[in-house]
Nucleic acid binder design. Sequence first.
DNA 1: ACCCAGGTGGCCC
DNA 2: GGGCCACATGGG
Length: 220
Amino acid sequence: MSPTKCIGLSEVYIRLLEFYGPQHWWPADTVLEIIIGAILVQGTNWRNAEKAISDLKKNNLLDVISLKNVDLNRLAKIIKSSGFQRVKASRIKNFIHRLCSDFQCNLDRLKTLPTARLRKWLLSIKGIGRETADNIILYAFNRSVFPVDKYTRRLFRRLGIIECNDYEEIRRYVESKITRLDILKEFRALIVVHCKNTCKTQPICRECPLEKMCHYRITK
DNA sequence: ACCCAGGTGGCCC
DNA sequence: GGGCCACATGGG
């Protein structure tokens, strides 16, 4: 099948925004909470991650020094609800250790890095991959990058927006079309909400904001 | 009893 | 580069 009519990223964004409304991601009180949340939400749903965040707060652990001092096994128990708790506890510890060794445990110092170096530094931490790094850069440090998740790949493939499946290429493509920070934040959130709630089984469903958009490949 | 959810690293080819 | 696996919980 070939596309009958092609559609741009901005129209996808506009339709999603009109349909779902602004999502105001990322919900958190502090920069550290966003970073820890980005690790906790890996491979699970937000509800489980959110529960773990609130359990960390209850235990007064959601600050750099407390996380630095807490016992690994205790940390794993507290974040249990997020799943993969042992690996995630290690990942949180890895981040904190590197923050302390490289930036004197100070997030404000980390913040002074230019985006490319910040990204490289995050990716050098075991347990922080591309998506988590870009979530942190976008939502915690307010830089214009676009995290690419499996929803995004699937949606873009279905809509025929971009053929390739390469993370960096998709990221650069979106960043070349959309540069505004607030729009990148909303776009990413809207894609997740859309794929999660409405068009789970069918790529283009009736009553869905992307109905009648061009798509030439209906694949899983 | 399944299936899925805002991933990552290790290993293999 | 891609495919598969372990990691683990909570909700439908």
